[in-house]
Each structure stands twice: as structure tokens, then as C-alpha cells.
């Protein structure tokens, strides 16, 4: 069963104008037999692995900077995961936090598109030598 079923979480970047409703309808219109469930952050798409892969490629093609995706272990609506059953599971806070960071990641993808190179990492400041700290402390005294 694991091999067959794939559930995909699509998350829309907070600075995007794409709406969950719009995304869900787009996927639905692709007509690949993939079930779609709209969520507050985007949507869940569920179907055979091959069909979901096609949907993913198409969504990435249309919204490269707006929509991000990962697999989800639980099928859509699974009571083991459902918020209504027990309250939020711990991974919810994780998703919330990652969602907030997506706009920054979009900027990174734009930089990739412009063919930029990363700046060399800044040298770590290192600790203040103890002798120096001692001098400062003594000066204040």
C-alpha cells in the first residue's frame, strides 16, 4: 500500500497571491484522478505515486516561487492525525514555523534563477580573549 498511495502537502508561501481555493481547483482540473483537500495553508493531494508526481511537476511549473511541497505520511483525514480528535499534534507548530519562512526561501529561489553565487560565509566573530575581557572589566572598576 505504501508504494501506491502518496499524500502530498502543498503549502503556499505567505507572500503569494495564490489562494488555497485556486490551487485546489487547479489540481482538480488537471484531471489525474488525484483527490484534493483544501486546507488553511494550501491543500493536500492524494493518489497513486505516479499521478501525484505529475501533479507536483505541473504545480512546480506553474508556481515555482509560490508553492512548496513535501510528502505527508498520513492519508488525508486520517483520524490518527486529525486535529479535531485530540487537538493539534506537535508537527503542526513545525508547519506553522516553516510556512512563515517560505517567503525568504522564495527570495533564495529567485537568486538561483538569476544565476547568482552565494557570498562567502562570514568569519565567525570568535570569543573575546579572556585577557581583553579582564582589561575591560578592570577599566570599569
Amino acid at each position: 500500500m505504501s508504494e501506491d498511495r502518496e499524500t502530498r502537502l502543498f503549502m503556499i508561501s505567505p507572500d503569494s497571491t495564490v489562494t488555497p481555493d485556486q490551487l485546489a481547483r487547479e489540481i482538480h482540473a488537471m484531471g489525474r484522478g488525484v483527490a484534493v483537500k483544501e486546507t488553511c495553508y494550501g491543500c493536500l493531494a492524494e493518489g497513486s505515486r505516479a499521478a501525484v508526481a505529475e501533479v507536483l511537476a505541473e504545480v512546480r511549473g506553474r508556481h515555482p516561487l509560490d508553492v512548496f511541497s513535501k510528502r505527508r505520511a498520513y492519508p488525508a483525514g486520517d483520524p490518527r492525525r486529525c486535529r479535531a480528535q485530540h487537538g493539534t499534534r506537535p508537527g503542526y507548530a513545525q508547519l506553522e514555523a516553516e510556512w512563515a519562512a517560505l517567503a525568504m526561501i522564495s527570495r533564495g529561489l529567485e537568486a538561483c534563477g538569476r544565476g547568482e553565487s552565494p557570498r562567502p560565509p562570514a568569519e565567525p566573530a570568535g570569543g573575546l580573549p579572556v585577557e581583553k575581557f579582564k582589561e575591560i572589566a578592570e577599566a570599569i572598576r
Partner: peptide, 13 residues
Amino acid sequence: AKTVYPDVSHADV
């Protein structure tokens, strides 16, 4: 009884 997880958001943490 049933066990429940009090809802909190990332900002609440």
C-alpha cells in the same frame, strides 16, 4: 476519559 493536547500556535511557544 480521553487524552487531548491543548492547542498552541508557534507564536505561543
